[in-house]
Design a protein around this nucleic acid. Structure first.
Lengths: 193, 193
DNA sequence: AAATGCATGTAACGCGTTACATGATTTT
DNA sequence: AAAATCATGTAACGCGTTACATGCATTT
């Protein structure tokens, strides 16, 4: 809800634009789907926090351009003044790794490798975003804060990738040890049969 | 849902125990409230994934002890075989920092400092958990995986704390610069008046 | 001609949190 | 005596995702 107000302080936008902007700016640490954006804009408009102006378009539904109002800025300020609550964590990869005993080793390795690759790709995006989006607007007063947020993502991802590399090495070591163990196990099972 | 199955592979437990166990083990990267645990256990029981046995207690409602069934283990294995989906990020601190231009500098500094302290505290917990919980069960076949998950948390937190320290320094520098700037601003405003 | 993209939106559904209810036991 | 803790659970509510609907424009 408040992301919308925050982004509208930079310039008036339509719901669609807001979706694109979110993806391209705060997307790394905050996301909002169109299923929320459109209804939330309506609610904000009903409360007088944003005003809308419809611009006709050829062939497409009218473009609703929203601007933040004075009341909206007050609401944003009020929200910004609330100390951020620590989020509830939900990391499916870690949970599956935690139960790794019950997962075939190659599968686990695959999971961690995929994660590392995705994170490496996001790191490139964040670095590019910093160079292109933030540096180009470096005279905008918000730029230093954008950079700090981008650095958070970069620092976090680098830590994740390092961890992934260590973990993959360890998983492979365990897997090879397991193979030699289970070779013995196989002989036994064979013998029993 | 599946955390419950996963934890029940180590030993039969009641819903209450599961809540405590979650907090003490996977809590850093996965949480589940009692408002979910109890209904989910019922659903799992209805589906035959767990069996329950009620033990009478003095003065308290009967203790329902749940055990995972063969069918439950199959369900768990199936879930573990699904590649983990990247989570949707929601970091309120970062979002507020991103809009930091509209936030009084001391408030921002406070937010980041609080975050750093919380994370430092969690780091101690994780390190202690590794020493006490994991090392003591080091012969349990799941232990290496628990350790990997704990290391993820440690690596991530260390990166967060470092970032926080850098960011606080930068925010303070900006704040002092802003103060001298706004001193000029004050003079101007004074003059205009 | 068919498929994909643009741009707006609505509806259904599921998941999860919070608050409440209960009733004995232990603590202050 | 009052308050907090243990241990179970239920109900209401809100948030968010996914899927669907629309209809013109552009691309293949």
């Amino acid at each position: 809800m408040e992301v919308l107000l925050g982004l509208l302080t930079t310039e008036p936008m339509s719901g669609y634009d807001l979706g694109l902007t979110i993806r391209g700016s705060v997307g790394y640490f905050w996301n909002e789907s169109y299923g929320q954006i459109y209804p939330n804009l309506k609610k904000l408009a009903a409360g007088g926090f944003v005003s809308s102006k419809s611009e006709p378009q050829k062939g497409k539904p009218d473009r609703q351009v929203y601007s933040i109002t004075k009341k909206g800025r007050e609401r944003l300020a009020k929200w910004l003044a609330v100390p951020p609550q620590p989020e509830v964590p939900r990391n499916e990869l870690l949970l599956k790794l935690f139960f790794g005993e019950q997962v075939p080793a190659p599968m686990l390795i695959d999971y961690v490798e995929h994660m590392a690759e995705e994170h490496r790709a996001v790191l490139l995006l964040l670095e590019r975003a910093e160079r292109e989006e933030i540096d180009k607007n470096r005279h905008y007063p918000g730029a230093p804060y954008w950079r700090m947020a981008a650095h958070y993502g970069q620092a976090e991802i680098k830590a994740h990738v390092l961890w992934a590399e260590e973990t993959i090495a360890e998983l492979k070591k365990m897997a090879s040890k397991q193979r030699s163990d289970s070779a013995i196990g196989l002989e036994r099972r064979h013998a029993r049969k």
